[in-house]
């Protein structure tokens, strides 16, 4: 077989979804997606064993989308935390963002983990052992504090070391179920943590939330070019999917030696770091968060770093970033509920 050097197939990011039909065979390579408008009628569908099923499936928008919209209509602000690269601190930042918002007692905050193969949120929030409560009105999120609720796939796994070996379609189903079933209730901010990359999870979160309205995405990166390279791809993704970019945060920038206070650039910003990238791409730069070993430790123990070390430089930096996120979303007043 001669290999093809063709450009990636274009995924239609704006088409409304319809119900996914039951397929008889796995989706082929150039499948437009059984949920897409084009299912069964696209050029690539010729010869696919699923073609008839896809073509005859009821057209029109997915009836689940209004359910999701209804569920989330009581959530005022929705933020996606994205990064093309893994391990740059998406989950850490999501946790801190939620903790910071929740430090304002007048806000109710939710945190949803859509990383199905590697969910870290429950551990970072210190609620690893919890399970979901199912009531007649839906699934109840796990409450970390009075005004901070968490939802993750981890809560549904029998053993916490079990690998979730799922293909994309199955992951999409779960994310959808999450959005449909979880009873977030009256909520001010919902933070959605995502896995690295630009694939199934991102596409489905985007299309499921399209009608309920997402405020935008916060991109997290580390300063070195290897990470920025992937973040550029994520910016491209956001543009193509028409997701507003609230801004970019540079995490792990600079490490202050606890011994001699000498600052080292461990992940050197040889190409100007996130600041330069933000300027080049004309997106807001939200700030930098220094590398502090205590952040990692707080996450390991499931504590809030912001509560544990309120005077550290990293904490101040994070609070600054969170304020900027609030500003970008157009939230009124000081989102943290206090003045420094």
């Amino acid at each position: 077989m001669a290999p093809s050097l063709e450009e990636p197939t274009k995924v239609d990011l704006n088409a409304p979804l319809k119900v996914a039909p039951k397929l008889v065979a796995p989706e082929p390579e150039h499948c437009p997606g059984p949920e897409s408008e084009q299912a069964g009628v696209a050029d690539n569908c010729a010869g696919c064993p699923n073609q008839k099923i896809c073509a005859s499936a009821p057209k029109g928008p997915d009836p689940d989308i209004p359910v999701i919209t209804e569920r989330l209509s009581s959530v005022r602000h929705k933020i996606l935390v994205l990064s093309g690269k893994g391990g740059v601190g998406k989950s850490t930042f999501s946790t801190m963002l939620s903790h910071a918002f929740a430090s304002n007692p007048s806000l109710t905050v939710g945190l949803m983990d859509t990383d199905i193969c590697g969910p870290s949120i429950p551990k970072m929030m210190g609620v690893e052992e919890e399970t979901i409560h199912v009531s007649a009105e839906g699934w109840e999120p796990v409450w970390v504090s009075e005004n901070l609720g968490v939802m993750s796939v981890q809560f549904m796994l029998p053993g916490r070391d079990d690998a979730v070996i799922w293909r994309g379609a199955k992951k999409n189903g779960l994310i959808k179920k999450f959005l449909m079933e979880v009873r977030w209730g009256d909520m001010d901010v919902l933070v959605v943590d995502t896995p690295p990359g630009t694939s199934d999870e991102h596409l489905s979160v985007n299309s499921f939330l399209k009608t309920s309205g997402v405020d935008g995405a916060v991109l997290v990166t580390t300063p070195q070019e290897v990470a920025l390279l992937d973040v550029r791809k994520e910016i491209d993704f956001c543009r193509k999917a028409k997701i507003t970019i609230l801004g970019i945060v540079e995490n792990m920038s600079g490490f202050v030696c606890p011994g001699c206070k000498h600052e080292s650039q461990i992940f050197r910003a040889s190409t100007g770091g996130a600041k330069r990238l933000a300027a080049d791409e004309k997106i807001p730069f939200l700030g930098t968060v220094p590398l502090d070993p205590r952040i990692g430790m707080a996450c390991d123990f499931g504590e809030s770093f912001l509560d544990a070390y309120p005077d550290s430089p990293a904490c101040k930096a994070i609070r600054h970033v969170v304020r900027r996120v609030g500003e970008e979303m157009g939230m009124q007043g000081d989102v943290l509920g206090d003045e420094e």
Binding site: L5, E7, P8, T9, V11, L13, P26, E27, P28, E29, H30, C31, G33, G84, R167, G168, A169, T198, S199, D200, H202, L203, L229, R232, K233, E234, I235, D236, F237, K240, A241
Partner: peptide, 18 residues
């Protein structure tokens, strides 16, 4: 293979498998 290093590869599972 990508023509531009900043381009996102937005692929669903089946395409990645292939």
């Amino acid at each position: 293979i990508l023509s531009n290093r900043g381009d996102a590869v937005i692929w669903r599972g089946p395409k990645k498998t292939a």
